[in-house]
Write a protein that binds this DNA or RNA. Structure first.
Lengths: 205, 205
DNA sequence: TAGATTGTTAATCGATTAACAATC
DNA sequence: TAGATTGTTAATCGATTAACAATC
């Protein structure tokens, strides 16, 4: 692989650049500068250039970046020049909403497996997908090559679900449960907790 | 007011400490150390102590922190020793899910106003709340003292909604639309975009 | 050519960690 | 008292910004 070690924080900004580039393209633009891109994402032009230059020389002096080209490069870097299958565990409001969410499709992801442990929900359909029993989750996921899962169960079940996921090929977890989960270093975890974001802002009110 | 200037990144960690403390309390613990708390949130003990000490001396040498006491202090600091009313704009899957979300109640927030611009949705009920017309949003919010709003409309309407919110008393926005919005410096904005989080992780897969 | 903008280096800034005296 | 853990200072580490030669 021989991949140069890139700081995690830079990787985290690439999706924001990509999002802005896609929108620029939708607006009919063909090229953009680090200055303009910086204004779109709220980051200095110098940082944009520094971040991008970690991966190659994708710009042109005096001109800027070709939006289509840079966009493709970032997709390649992030490994989203393909569609990833995703499993969701927990079909409460959050899991249900995520399953129906249309925003994943054109950004590299599709939900292919959904689980819940409640007898009333197992077997029901959400869109095209039948809700499956969480008790069978390990076996079910292991029949696929799903590497990404979202946890949307109550906080006190999140660690249990995470432990089970370790028995599958899942290597990336997006955790909506408001609790930290412990997993080995080779598993990536990201957290989304709206109350935490709100509490951050109330300090300033 | 005379509030010492605290780095924003420290404020952002307080909700995580609070979340862990609440869980410890629920487990029956009465005291905790920076070491233990650090393990719960995945942050070094030194940093926990440094962060907390910005606001006062809440611990006791040789013993640690009283969970109940520290928890109350953090709630006071974050201004969540009360319940904030919240408005949600956009009743698609995300907005609907947020409206029904039970996780806000005991963390300082309650949804009191929900808006949508589609005639089929206006007037329908979600739980106890009637969906109101986004066209009336400014007037409706201005009859209340709502200071927090969540935007859950499509990306191309987010900026318009944000501009309208500026005509109200809203000072904090949690934006679920996958686009950056431009607002004056005195308005706080936080972003939640699951696809962005997923794209961050695929780099490592 | 003149103007614009990249890629990159050096300087600055800020955040994290290590260490330890104070003290419960 | 002995052991533990805080609050804080100094050292380290890493990230951001400023500046500019290269060049389209």
């Amino acid at each position: 692989m021989e991949k140069k070690k890139i700081p995690d924080i830079i990787i985290g900004r690439l999706p924001l650049y990509l999002r802005a580039l896609n929108r620029m393209a939708a607006n009919g633009s063909a090229i953009s500068s680090s200055k303009e891109l910086g204004e779109w994402v709220g980051i200095s032009a110098a940082q944009i250039r520094k971040d991008i230059s970690q991966f190659g020389e994708f710009g042109k002096q005096g001109t800027g970046y070709n939006i289509e080209f840079l966009s493709r490069k970032i997709r390649e870097i992030l490994n989203i020049d393909r569609i990833w299958d995703v499993a969701i565990i927990g079909m409460g409001d959050i899991g249900h909403g995520l399953t129906e969410y249309q925003g994943f499709r054109n950004r590299g992801f599709q939900v292919t497996l959904v689980f819940d442990n409640s007898p009333e929900k197992i077997g029901t359909k959400i869109g095209d997908l039948a809700v499956q029993d969480t008790a069978d989750m390990v076996d079910t996921i292991n029949k696929t090559d799903v590497k990404i899962a979202m946890i949307a169960v109550p906080a006190d079940h999140a660690q249990t679900v995470a432990d089970e996921l370790l028995k599958t090929g899942v290597k990336a977890i997006l955790n909506y449960a408001p609790i930290r989960i412990n997993v080995p270093d080779n598993i990536r975890v990201q957290y989304i907790d709206p109350a935490t974001h709100l509490q951050w802002m109330t300090y300033y009110l």
